[in-house]
């Protein structure tokens, strides 16, 4: 793997497809967590802080079980549990396939996304490639304290507080 390649964890949440640098990830749990459970999650005998990404991205709650990704995070526990709708794969991201956030979107997404990854996937039947746009998550935007920007939530503020309603 060259310096311009990185491993990323691909997962989806509602209609959004994300990629997250693997160095931010401690473990993808085989075990699953009840979405209706408390605000902490049990991991290797410890209670970790827990983040429901559906809530963060203003998606309606759903019932049932969901995969849990354990991320590095500041604080005494050093880890954070993140619930997603589905983990798809671990893939190799080439830096030259990453495009920047467009300027009009930076105030809304700059604290949380590093950009977009244009993932090329082969289409077997047609012998061509299909391009899928992945939202490249900033790890510190989840577990850490992102720098406050206009239109973005302050650290600790629910992400939904800065979402929606604007034309």
């Amino acid at each position: 793997m060259s310096q311009t390649e990185h491993l990323v964890v691909l997962f989806h949440l509602g209609p959004y497809r994300f990629a997250l640098a693997s160095e931010e990830v401690i473990e993808i749990c085989d075990g699953r967590r009840d979405r209706e459970a408390a605000l902490t999650c049990r991991y290797r005998g410890r209670d970790l802080p827990f983040l429901d990404l559906r809530q963060r991205f203003s998606l309606p709650p759903v019932q049932g079980w969901a995969p849990l990704i354990i991320l590095k995070a500041p604080g005494p526990e050093g880890a954070l549990g993140v619930q997603v709708d589905g983990v798809e794969a671990i893939a190799l991201l080439r830096a030259d396939a990453v495009v920047d956030l467009p300027e009009p979107l930076r105030p809304f997404l700059g604290a949380h996304l590093d950009g977009f990854w244009i993932q090329s996937l082969p289409v077997e039947e047609e012998g061509e490639t299909k391009r899928v746009v992945r939202l490249l998550l900033r790890g510190e935007g989840l577990g850490g304290a992102p720098e406050a920007k206009p239109g973005s939530p302050a650290p600790g503020e629910p992400f939904a507080a800065s979402c929606g309603g604007l034309p």
Binding site: Y16, P102, L105, G115, F116, C163
Partner: peptide
């Protein structure tokens, strides 16, 4: 093709790719 985005203004329908750039 449009890729939806979270937490953007209601008027933003997502991004599309045009000449290698992400265009809101």
């Amino acid at each position: 093709d449009l890729t939806p985005l979270p937490c953007v203004p209601a008027s933003c329908k997502g991004i599309t790719l045009w000449q290698g750039q992400a265009v809101p």
